[in-house]
């Protein structure tokens, strides 16, 4: 782990308009290069809010965030060049083919020409979508759509990749494939920030996790460290339930 964090979060707070309760409360956190950092928490815990602020979708109410040494408020345009985002929704155009979708998103990252063409070709090949590259997305299975969704976020080889529930609603094979690929690109230098409801998946994939609830970080560390800290539990899911409770969340 490098000494200098790639993401530095200090006292981050976000109030939504019309709400008395903050969505996130004075969170401070460092994420280091080459980490696969898991942001875990029940619905409404503040995961998506945190990621949205880090991606520049909206500003925080209070606090400081720097990404790769750049302030999120003043340098968001530069930050957007080094981050990749894979939203939970299938953020694709259903009537366009995978190739057309990826060409468009690649262009938006400033990629073009043969470089983009080769990159798309490589990605489609790796993800087993080469033969259906020209078919419209609306003819794809759920797993295939998820794979294209993932490719769209990492075409430009981002330094930092944000993944919001990348494996939700897909078959086991596609899930394992995606997780293996994420491990692979992480080894090649991509830092990954990842949210999930699948605790087992997070336990296996993440180098470090933060469990957030009601806008606070209530646990932070390597999965193994958390298990040592809570010897009464045998896995991350039990620790998660212990810390966040079993009450249903909206």
């Amino acid at each position: 782990m490098s000494d200098r964090p790639i993401i530095e979060i200090r006292d981050l707070t976000k109030f939504y308009k019309g709400s008395d309760e903050p969505a996130i409360k004075s969170i401070s956190l460092d994420i280091y290069p080459n980490e696969i950092f898991g942001l875990l928490g029940p619905n409404g815990a503040g995961k998506t809010t945190t990621i949205s602020i880090l991606c520049g979708l909206f500003p925080p109410t209070k606090g400081e965030v720097t990404i790769d040494g750049m302030d999120i408020r003043s340098s968001i345009d530069r930050i957007k060049h080094i981050i990749g985002v894979v939203p939970q929704d299938l953020a694709l155009y259903p009537t366009l083919s995978a190739l057309e979708n990826l060409t468009f998103f690649g262009n938006m990252y400033g990629m073009r020409g043969i470089l983009l063409k080769d990159r798309i070709h490589d990605c489609l090949k790796i993800f087993g979508l080469e033969k259906v590259a020209h078919k419209q997305i609306n003819s794809y299975s759920g797993g295939m759509k998820r794979r294209v969704n993932l490719i769209a976020g990492l075409l430009h080889k981002p330094k930092l990749l944000f993944l919001d529930e990348p494996t939700v609603g897909i078959d086991v094979q596609s899930r394992i494939f995606i997780l293996d690929y994420l491990n692979e690109i992480n080894k090649l230098g991509t830092t990954i920030i990842y949210t999930s409801h699948y605790m087992e998946e997070a336990e296996n994939l993440c180098t470090r996790v933060a469990i957030v609830d009601r806008g606070n970080i209530i646990a932070l560390g390597k999965p193994a460290e958390l298990l040592i800290k809570h010897p009464e539990f045998t896995n991350l899911e039990n620790i998660f339930l212990h810390l966040t409770g079993k009450t249903l969340r909206d």
Binding site: C55, G56, L57, D77, K80, H81, I83, V85, P87, Q88, D89, L90, A91, L92, Y93, P94, F105, M108, Y109, G110, A152, G153, F162
Partner: peptide, 13 residues
Amino acid sequence: EEGSLIRLLTMPV
């Protein structure tokens, strides 16, 4: 609604 706008807003465009 399809989420493409969210993705686009995280891109340098």
